[in-house]
Design a protein around this nucleic acid. Structure first.
Lengths: 156, 156
DNA sequence: TATTGTTATACTCTATAACTATA
DNA sequence: TATAGTTATAGAGTATAACAATA
């Protein structure tokens, strides 16, 4: 029996198991990033603000979809941002059950501060990275998220 | 003032903000993967088993380092796997304060089942991906984690 | 005195279920 | 009856601090 790996009979390599380990270890990056946020703005609030800026005004259901969380979870996060004056809830002219979420000037100011801190953190930690590698990672992460689709549980 | 982007005055693009959004949205993938695990084996337990198999026997502090969590957190996760008979704690001949964590045959069997489920999930969701892209993503994720270093808080 | 590990407590994020209001 | 959203409750994961045992 010939081996092409130098004579050792190796376990068959499973690239999915390696990916799973990398995914599992990824939590450390999220926690490292969360640590640079202001104390009064949690990670979930930051995500709400960033999505409202990037996608514009939207309803709760749409935001929950973008965050891939149950609407009950999204509702709490949105309430948190409304309490702090970063987001306002406007009546939805098309549907009385729904309200439109909109970033306020204070919310935009907070988001600007958040972006400054996040950019600063990446600038420090990814100093050795080429722009192309950063873009490649961003693209692959987005693609992975798309490939997994909306994995939220369906409580039918 | 000339514009090279078709006449629209665009915001300066910040690749770090895009990466931050991709990182933020990544939680959906972790949750999707966690959903395929057996009910009696949580994600943290799965990580403990995978790391013990991949790196071999080790002490608590080393495992905490690999998981990038505080040792108090790691201790709880390890206790969970010990309770279920997947890991045993052996005395450390070099240090009476410490114990060596070792995967048991039951633990290896559980890990085999976990790997089967995770591989199955990836096979379904990443059917369109080339092997090279999977490897590229795995490599970039590992590199990102390394670049962020050990971001655990230092309660000195 | 410093270090390894454990336990108690609190906080963040998420899901399920029950509920209100509107379509 | 179905849908949009809210609230209550429970569970998983993490950090801080206080503690025990050993170096």
């Amino acid at each position: 029996m010939r081996e092409t790996d130098g004579g050792l009979a190796m376990e068959p390599r499973n690239r999915y198991e390696e990916l799973a380990r990398a995914v599992s270890a990824f939590g450390a990056v999220k926690r490292g990033l969360a640590r640079v946020l202001p104390v009064d703005c949690q990670g979930a609030s930051a995500a709400v603000l960033a999505l409202l800026k990037h996608h514009g005004d939207m309803r709760m259901g749409r935001l929950a979809e973008l965050m891939s969380v149950d609407m009950s979870v999204c509702s709490r996060h949105a309430a948190h941002t409304v309490e702090r004056g970063w987001v306002e809830r406007l009546p939805d002219p098309d549907d009385g059950r729904s309200r439109i979420l909109r970033l306020t000037p204070d919310g935009l100011a907070m988001l600007t501060e958040l972006d400054r801190r996040v950019t600063d953190a990446f600038t420090r930690h990814l100093a050795e990275w080429s722009d192309d590698d950063v873009d490649r990672l961003t693209t692959l992460l987005a693609r992975l998220r798309d490939s997994f689709g909306d994995c939220r549980a369906t409580h039918a």
